[in-house]
Design a protein around this nucleic acid. Structure first.
Length: 117
DNA sequence: GCATTGACGAAGG
DNA sequence: CCCTTCGCCAATG
């Protein structure tokens, strides 16, 4: 993870936002992966919780690129409309079918893994 | 300051 | 293989 992300100096939410914003267009990741990338392994739930307030943060956090480990859009309900999250993902070039990201494994983007460069 | 909760995840039955 | 339970940890009441 970026050296700027120090949980001693930066809040947990800020770290989550930073990682999520680094997700490339057309790729997705999971809450657990984000949590792991920022050091706090077992905070996958809080990652989702952070996404809840992400909409109020500038610049907007692409929370639609973060799904659960199955690639399911569990947080779509928090996007205002029922199809908002799918639409955003579709704009990113990510196909969504039945609330699940198609080819999730191929589109999966591991922050801690691909961020190291 | 204790109890509940949550956009999760892994393990067990 | 589906469903339940448990663990995780920070925020919230």
């Amino acid at each position: 993870m970026p050296q700027n992300l120090n949980k001693t100096t930066i809040d947990f939410f800020e770290m989550v936002y930073a990682v999520v914003r680094l997700i490339p267009r057309g790729r997705v990741t999971s809450y657990g992966a984000v949590a792991n990338s920022i050091g706090t392994k077992g905070t996958s739930r809080m990652v989702g919780w952070a996404m809840n307030t992400a909409h109020a943060v500038r610049p907007k956090v692409p929370a639609q690129r973060v799904v659960n480990r199955n690639g399911m859009l569990t947080g779509k309900h928090h996007f205002g409309t029922a199809t908002a999250m799918e639409e955003l993902l579709k704009k990113d070039g990510v196909e969504v079918k039945n609330d699940v990201v198609v080819d999730f494994l191929k589109r999966f983007w591991d922050p801690s893994k691909e961020l190291v460069l």
